[in-house]
Design a protein around this nucleic acid. Structure first.
Lengths: 190, 190
DNA sequence: CACCCACGTTAACGGTCACTAACATCGCCG
DNA sequence: CGGCGATGTTAGTGACCGTTAACGTGGGTG
């Protein structure tokens, strides 16, 4: 049997699962679909995950952790809030353009994650939002936290729309457009 | 049997279905769920719709038609493109705040609509986007149609994020915030 | 009043799906 | 080289789900 680095199969399954979940939704994908997507058939997945829900949970936890960690690193590296915001925007946009399936699953399928992991994902997502709010608060001292939170959520909606308008523009053009639109939106006074 | 205006039951079913589909996704809702939500049980729905997919199609066609018709009316009533854009934004925002379930289903479940109706929904959606592009083109003569289309999709993502951040702000504050953010985003040069 | 039709009901059927059981294969390690 | 753990395979199995069948009922109409 072809030997490969430990966990490679597991990562391959997670990647394929994200694509299928993004395309058809959690309940629209069968275990056999998932197996076929990685070249095995159906029940082989139970060697790597205890069940379908656990697989979804692993995808969501992975995405949430990557987003939060990336934002933390970028924010810490830029003392100027304006530059920190730009860096965080570039990070999120890069993620959305590179892995549209992960972004899609991330904001659609939380409801299908079983309870202990759901709480974990929620906490990670909240932490991510709060990092954005903290940076934004320094740029807009007049605005209260609820407004900033709502603004951040709206900006995420803008950035995460990429999967739905794929192919309209080449990725670099699209990235630049999203960067300017999101910046303008986040700094607009209401 | 309680007699009510013709089609009232049908409309009631559509409304309940939109809520459930938005919450759990098309495949996450059963016929029995839908029946229970309107006080009947399961198969009674087949007196009103030929099947589950037809029900979803009816929801999507209804939403798409309302959005497109509303935008057409508002755009025609305002000769100034700046005012037309504001009016269209207010219309979409009002819709998103009033009927979050419809907005959610509208941009998630197209893939589950069977083929003849899917084409129809797509055409309606495309027409809606093109109305926005036409107005925007007058405000940003320098930008090409692909950029404007991408910008419009991104703005929809921003506006449609409301369901995910419900309760952060009172509806009027949220509406005003979305209006300013979307305006700034759509008019930002890239 | 008789009939019919709109609208429900419950029971059953056939298919699909997540998951389990039982069994095979292959590389590593003692 | 012999066994063992990791990783597959195929064949169930029980539950659920969309849909259909068969049957009830009550109000408007000829």
């Amino acid at each position: 049997m072809a030997q490969r680095p430990a966990g490679a199969r597991r990562a391959e399954i997670l990647r394929a699962a994200a694509v299928l979940f993004a395309e058809r939704g959690f309940h629209g994908v069968t275990i056999d679909d998932l197996g076929r997507a990685v070249g095995t058939s159906g029940p082989a997945l139970y060697r790597h995950f205890p069940g379908k829900e656990a697989l979804l949970a692993a995808v969501l936890i992975d995405v949430s952790e990557r987003l939060a960690a990336d934002a933390r690193a970028r924010a810490a590296a830029e003392p100027d809030p304006r530059e920190a915001l730009r860096a965080m925007l570039r990070g999120h946009i890069d993620f959305a353009l590179t892995e549209p399936a992960l972004i899609t699953v991330h904001d659609r399928e939380l409801g299908n994650v079983p309870e202990p992991e759901r709480r974990r994902v929620r906490r990670l997502q909240r932490g991510y939002v709060e990092q954005w709010v903290a940076v934004l608060a320094r740029l807009r001292p007049g605005a209260g936290a609820p407004v900033l939170r709502a603004a951040v959520h709206a900006a995420f909606g803008l950035l995460n729309s990429t999967p739905h308008s794929a192919g309209e523009l080449p990725p670099e053009r699209m990235g630049a457009l999203l960067l300017e639109m999101a910046t303008a939106a986040l700094l607009a006074e209401s």
